[in-house]
Design a protein around this nucleic acid. Structure first.
Lengths: 153, 153
DNA sequence: GGAAATCCATGTATAGTTGCAAGTGTTGTA
DNA sequence: TACAACACTTGCAACTATACATGGATTTCC
């Protein structure tokens, strides 16, 4: 039991460190889009083109709110509207190249920073870190990743 | 080198999982304060009472912006203004009990969720996770945690 | 003691998010 | 074909964040 507590504490520490990495990786994107807007881009990046309504639902946003927000995202050139081939009343949202690049840039920067951190460890240590983190990731897997959207990550 | 990449990938996975935890832990607080407001509470929670100016600097916010934001935080009962004993032109901001409780609640929830995840592992696995996470935390330590403020964490 | 500096609040302005309600166009159905 | 349901947009309205410039009070320094 004591070990559980210790491990949880260590995890809190790591969560701070990782969140620092995440925050830094996102901060550059936040110079050109807002956090709610970036959320949208992240969802699109993971899902491919989506209908307005589905996207709004996914983000727990009001339709009107989302429609207006999308106006700005489209105006910024990060995504585009198009009529769905299925139905002319449906509007599909797709990432533009800029939008995809913005999301990719954030992911890549994050990956790069993590690698930099890990390179400070010996190969043996890296192995144990990898193994342990995989264990943790698997144990955490039951938790849905949906809530990430709260932070737009 | 391959190990570095693998460990980085594993870490990305974990960062997602941890971010899910963080996002969930923060989401309840975000029902009563905004993210920028929560940022302020987190800083106060870690530092104790602070001057308006210092707090604004710490959050990279404009003085006027911050003053107005603080109006809302104080109106919400999360923090309070008081004249500094050092100088009557200085205004000290302190967390109220509500404000402290709000931050604590988030931290506790996060800790609880992490513990829950770890309890799915065997004691041996927990030990190795703890050891690995400590390694990572140490390696990451050189990275400033300042940027956490971007996300208000 | 008076000028300069400091600290904070206000005036003013812009932009973004949010949500309810109403409107437009499209599709499905009786 | 007419009516209902659906998908999205717009009208309105309130709130928040942000920042530049200004003003008021207090302290510091010459």
């Amino acid at each position: 039991m004591r070990n559980t507590v210790s491990a949880a504490d260590a995890t809190l520490l790591v969560s701070r460190a990782l969140l620092g990495v995440v925050a830094r990786s996102v901060s550059s994107a936040l110079e050109v889009v807002t956090l709610p807007q970036f959320r949208v881009l992240v969802v699109l990046s993971g899902s491919g083109p989506m209908r307005m309504g589905a996207l709004a639902d996914h983000l727990h946003a009001n339709q009107s709110t989302f429609s207006r927000s999308m106006d700005r995202i489209v105006a910024g050139g990060w995504a585009s509207r198009s009529t769905s081939p299925d139905s002319r009343r449906e509007v599909l949202i797709s990432l533009t190249d800029s939008g995809r690049a913005l999301v990719d840039e954030v992911t890549e920067r994050r990956h790069r920073e993590i690698s930099t951190i890990l390179e400070r460890l010996t190969p043996t240590e890296q192995d144990s870190v990898r193994a342990a983190l995989e264990l943790f990731a698997i144990a955490a897997d039951e938790y849905s990743v949906e809530e990430l959207l709260v932070l737009g990550i």
